[in-house]
Design a protein around this nucleic acid. Sequence first.
RNA 1: GCCGGGGUAGCUCAGUGGUAGAGCACUGCUCUGAAAAAGCAGUGGUCGAAGGUCCGAUUCCUUUCCCCGGCA
Length: 333
Amino acid sequence: MENQGKIIVILGPTSSGKTDLSIKLAKKLDGEIISADSRQVYKGMNIGTGKVTKKEMAGIPHYLLDVANPKTRFSVAQYQKLALRAIKNIQNLPAQAGKNSPPTNFESQNKFGSKKISNSKLVGGKIPFLVGGTGFYIQSVADGIVIPEVKPDWRLRKKLEKLTTEQMFKKLKELDPKRAKSIDKHNPRRLIRALEIVLKSKRPVGSLSHSERFKTLFLGIKKDQKELNGLIKKRLLKRLDEGMINEVKRLHKSGISFKRLEEFGLEYRYVAQYLQGKLNYNEMVTKLEKEIEHYAKRQMTWFKRDKRIHWINPHTKKKLNEVVKLCKNFLIE
RNA sequence: GCCGGGGUAGCUCAGUGGUAGAGCACUGCUCUGAAAAAGCAGUGGUCGAAGGUCCGAUUCCUUUCCCCGGCA
């Protein structure tokens, strides 16, 4: 596959300092930032997702923030499409498709908002930084995984949800024995999607193909688990202080059901439970702290297996300079 | 001091005359349009202590220590 240019990925567990590092590097290396976070894509979800503020952006354009309404479901496939488009714009390469239809998704503006795409068209030739903690989203872009075309059909999914996982698995085995072989037969999400693909496309789920589209430098921020847990707690308390609970209240008032809020997980799930009286305040805070720790570990499990990642911990000026050098070398070669 | 209830995995607790389990925590893992989601697996206990009965006690008996209620 043709080389589509270079991108730099910054990843790491929650609270590890990705945002801060990405802005520093983007400034030094003339880059722009694409968020790779499955929750920061939603409008109005700011404090709970730790979205960068306009001020923190320090003039660096950010993409893929606030591109979706929390009432609707966003997904990797949409993310992949928008992120690839954003990369092209940052690099100032001609877009392949939809060149004439400016993505209105990028237009949103609030105090957390992202830069309009039209600006970067004029600038161009910059380095795209893909920054975030959602491994799957990063993979979809950096490895260019080919996601089956079949769109989610929520009516079908709801119907399939009534089956037990055993029944789902049995059905999949009949319709697509190959996929059934590799699938986690206890996982309803995976089973439902696999069935959805087969039922809608009338074809088996193809084997996963990826093709590296970009020359990519992977930087991973690594923190000692104890230190990270400390950072997690600190940041959780800060978020509460900044009005996280009101943010969730506001979202609920704007018409987002508690059920939907709980689907988002972490902050939104447990604050929603608190607001419904399912938890008291202390229970909410301790539960949330623990759940965020778990989440960070899950993120690391995902990242650990990727041997391309350069693990860094740029907590001093000297270390930061080393990282800058690493990036420069990558960009030169 | 007396009367109850209890001491079993890091925590909360279940259980049995044949050397023990659950949930949570902890550890490892999976990931094909929900991924902060959804799943999987594993480690872990001289069953408070000492005696006794018994082929065999964590389980029954005695003593003892500790905790929690009530009465004084």
